[in-house]
Amino acid sequence: MKQDNAMLRVDDLTVRYGSHVTVDHVSFSVEPGQWLMIIGPNGAGKSTIINAISQGIKYEGNCYYEGRDLAKCKPRERARDLGVLSQNHFVGYDFTVEEVIRMGRYAYAPKMFSQERDKDGTALVEAAIEKTGMEPYLKQSVLTLSGGELQRTFLAQLFAQNPRLLLLDEPTNHLDLIYQKQTFALINEWLKEEGRAVVSVVHDLSLAKAYGTHAMLMQKGRVQAMGTIEDVMNPELLNATYNMDVYQWMGEMYSQWK
């Protein structure tokens, strides 16, 4: 990966919880058009990287978005470029689906005494609702939604936010197959527009292989391999990292369906 064209550049990122190092001197960059899959066994520090870039936890090192240090960015400005889908989606109160989706426009809401208006807001919210198929649910309480519907609600919020880089932490965790397919197809569609990129943590290696352009293989906080999806997802690397014959296992699994 070239450095000069990078949208996101993570430089020597280290995260510690007490004396335990969860992310150990990790550097990588993401260019427009790329979908970087962060893969690796449990405890590799994958989600922690997403948490650090989205400024949810303390870290050492730097994260730059188009050359700007994300730690020094104003939260509103950061949210206009960077959209994050977190893993935990438990909602406490019975907001309507529409209310939650509209929160995605927070970063564009005019400040007090400002003459600006959020001109594109309505159109973007409507487009996001249409894309995710949440139209019939708009007035429904989010507490009554299934896991898949809730995920689509937050995806709609994310699309309404209209960022250029998506950070996704296990976007299809606990979702039924149909929603896994829908979610990845939606994100793939979103990525097609110019100047956009996606970084996601994925457990399912088949999904990573199917949708990713690039991959970063991690183990115990360290980067084992990085590059295009084909380069990283080769038998030797995967087998060594996951401590099993990944290719044979995947083959066995899929041969059940033939």
């Binding site: 949810g56 949210a79 994050v84 406490g92 937050f154 936010q161």
Partner: peptide
């Protein structure tokens, strides 16, 4: 009220 993560994510 939706979640602190949500608040941070929307800016």
């Amino acid at each position: 009220a939706v979640g602190e993560d949500n608040a941070r994510n929307v800016g």
